[in-house]
Design a protein around this nucleic acid. Structure first.
Lengths: 156, 156
DNA sequence: AAATTGTAGTTGACGTGTCAACCATGCTAT
DNA sequence: ATAGCATGGTTGACACGTCAACTACAATTT
């Protein structure tokens, strides 16, 4: 009975929201991958291996920290292994797998960090007013019902 | 010289922004595709054919209105044609192609409309404060430098 | 001990996106 | 006329994502 049709403004708001996200996000990722050859996923993996695991993590922990399912991560690691960015090593006690960043991976990550930072600042942070920051923060708070992974960096 | 490192809050803001978007957007799309079998792309194509073209558009106009490149659209239409959601018909004067919504496509679209509306209301609009709305609107304004496609529905 | 369940990860199939190369045709300039 | 160039679209290769089915083995249950 509740028809719930959206009016023009509501539809436009949805499109604006989508549009801003894709535009900003796309610019950041493109800047990184143009300069480093890493994709967003590559960077996420390497970053977590480095910061959360000091170079290596169990595959499962890595998956959780990225909020990726095991299949997605498995496929992605297979591709990254081919490019020598990471290695996999089976654990024999536990039946898990250790994912280890290679020197190549570490160096790619180090190259990417400043570029990513600059890109996020330029395309995202510099575009935001204080009100936007507050809005984003609160919306995230309201939104994150049951989505575990919020990537809290390891304690200092 | 400009190191431009991000501090913890800045990084977290980026992750919160990404997280909210994916969470909300994912819920809307999942609700639609669970109930109708249409993907986001399918819906976008059908919606524009219906509203902008009254059932058909030149492939290139469709591409522009979606802000997709011709290759992406060509691949997508090939898949949609297989499922009988649209048809392609070559134009002989001009060397273009007319994309036409089929009865199947039209009916799928009509089924999807209320579901999409409800999902957008539930997962997106209902989560927003007035401040969020203002923030989204203004950010989109500031952001849309040179990105043509903002999908303005045809005049009433 | 044998059967069941749970955990960790892999695999294949297929939809989606991007890029570069290609094809066909119409337009323009020589 | 012909040589280029622009337009509109297709194609193939490959990266990325998702789903369901599968393997392997450890831990419990019976």
């Amino acid at each position: 009975m509740n028809k719930s049709e959206l009016n023009e403004e509501e539809i436009q708001l949805w499109y604006k929201w989508k549009g801003s996200f894709h535009s900003i996000f796309g610019r950041v990722i493109k800047e990184m991958s143009d300069h480093t050859g890493l994709s967003e996923g590559d960077y996420g993996v390497l970053d977590r291996l480095d910061l959360l695991g000091d170079g290596s993590l169990r595959q499962q922990e890595l998956a959780e920290s990225m909020d990726w399912d095991k299949s997605r991560l498995s496929h992605h690691l297979t591709r990254m292994e081919k490019r020598r960015l990471v290695m996999r090593k089976p654990l024999d006690n536990d039946r898990g797998v250790q994912v280890i960043i290679t020197p190549t991976g570490k160096s790619a990550l180090n190259d990417a960090r400043p570029i990513v930072s600059m890109a996020i600042r330029k395309h995202f942070l510099d575009q935001l007013t204080d009100q936007d920051v507050e809005s984003i923060t609160k919306l995230a708070e309201r939104t994150k019902k049951g989505s575990a992974a919020s990537y809290n960096a390891p304690a200092p």
